[in-house]
Design a protein around this nucleic acid. Structure first.
Ligand SMILES: [Mn+2]
Ligand SMILES: [Mn+2]
Ligand SMILES: [Mn+2]
Ligand SMILES: [Mn+2]
Lengths: 217, 217
DNA sequence: TTCATTATTTAGACAAATCTAAAAATTTAT
DNA sequence: ATAAATTTTTAGATTTGTCTAAATAATGAA
């Protein structure tokens, strides 16, 4: 059994290792809002518990055991987010902090029953995949909106940036999950994207487009 | 804001002070599964935070601030129990440990929405009252027979278990709706209840007593 | 390659919550 | 009232997770 703190480290390492592997001490320190020295201490401890492979000065990777633990925390986090939005009418930008706490509740029965109660959702309110109880993710294929070309059509199925300011911005633009979009033009000089949403033309910056995930169809 | 640990202490002190006031160090130690020395340390800390009135060697009482904090934790604990039983099909004997963790999640929005989602329940799955957000308990006219104390009198007004075996058992004992009862004693070692029904003394198990609802009068 | 900069680790300290063992206060029994 | 038993507190140590400051390793530039 891991402590609340160890679980947070494992989850962060899991997320960071999708970007660069092995994961470096400072990257963890920044994400977890702590000092590099504290991270080093924790990496040694996680290494002793065989949850990570840690090589001094080189960085850290998750072991199989560490990875499945991390995925389980991600599963719990996302299921709770679905619960908050679908059942308790939270907005998608209000759920993160609470889920950050709820993900640490220890009870397999609880999480299995919650999954069932929510009807085995495959994605969370931000479009992120929810692993099943064996740690497997469904393979839905997303593309970043910023990668699409004129005349491409698709549906918004996720976001890759979860800050409340970003989510509220999307809401204001009407770019919420499930909306169908069509690319009109990608502007040369700033990479901004002109698109059509519900017969409405709009222009969004490349920065925003990068964080919107589209299922083409 | 209090730590997880401080919250557990406050809740235990709250419950124990219904039995004896002030609450003694050893009583807390026993309930919280810790050593008396640890309790003393924590009482000093809670006293510094003005959550309890602590007098060396005399014991401890909750301040107003401490009491309302404790009641809020009790509220959260019981609401989560209702959620687990009503929505996730937990049995009433499976909920306690999970609620013991869930009660510490910090989010007023969460608990207000949960309350609403559950339709503002007044009692938890064990028949214990759920305080509202202002800390007020409803005064329901009925109580579980197992919650009564010696010399309490009342009338049987309902049951909370409807299986035919249980109802036949009550019939055989003469414990039917409308009968007046009086508690003689609640036995320490098994929680069974000695009571008087129509000048007749009898002893019923705690399990049976829990499912009989009484209107005190 | 040598020096400067940046990243990481070590050393030593601290706060929270706990423990054991010993001391002190309180209660109970003689 | 005095001694014995019990309860509670203190003293000092331990574990977990954190920190600052100093040392060391790795990287990048001249
Ligand atoms: Mn977390
Ligand atoms: Mn999410
Ligand atoms: Mn608890
Ligand atoms: Mn209960």
């Amino acid at each position: 059994m891991q402590s609340y703190t160890e679980e947070n480290y494992l989850k962060i390492i899991y997320h960071l290792s999708e970007i660069s592997n092995p994961v470096l001490t400072n990257a963890i320190a920044e994400r977890i809002q702590t000092k590099a020295a504290s991270v080093t201490d924790m990496l040694k401890k996680l290494s002793d518990k065989e949850l990570v492979n840690y090589v001094k000065y080189q960085g850290v990777t998750l072991t199989e055991k560490g990875k499945s633990t991390a995925i389980n925390i991600v599963r719990k986090h996302r299921l709770w987010e679905v619960f908050l939005v679908d059942k308790l009418n939270f907005k998608w930008d209000e759920v993160h902090d609470v889920a950050e706490e709820l993900e640490h509740i220890q009870s397999n029965l609880l999480i299995e029953r919650l999954d069932e109660f929510l009807d085995f959702p495959k994605v969370d309110p931000h479009g992120d995949l929810i692993p099943d109880k064996y740690g497997n993710f469904a393979d839905l294929s997303f593309a970043k909106l910023s990668k699409l070309k004129p005349k491409d059509k698709g549906t918004i199925t996720g976001v890759s940036e979860h800050s409340s300011t970003f989510l509220k911005h999307l809401e204001k633009l009407g770019l919420t999950l499930g909306k169908r979009i069509e690319i009109i033009e990608v502007l040369e000089f700033d990479g901004s994207v002109e698109l059509l949403v519900e017969q409405q033309k709009m222009n969004i910056s490349r920065e925003v487009a990068k964080h919107i995930l589209i299922t083409k169809n």
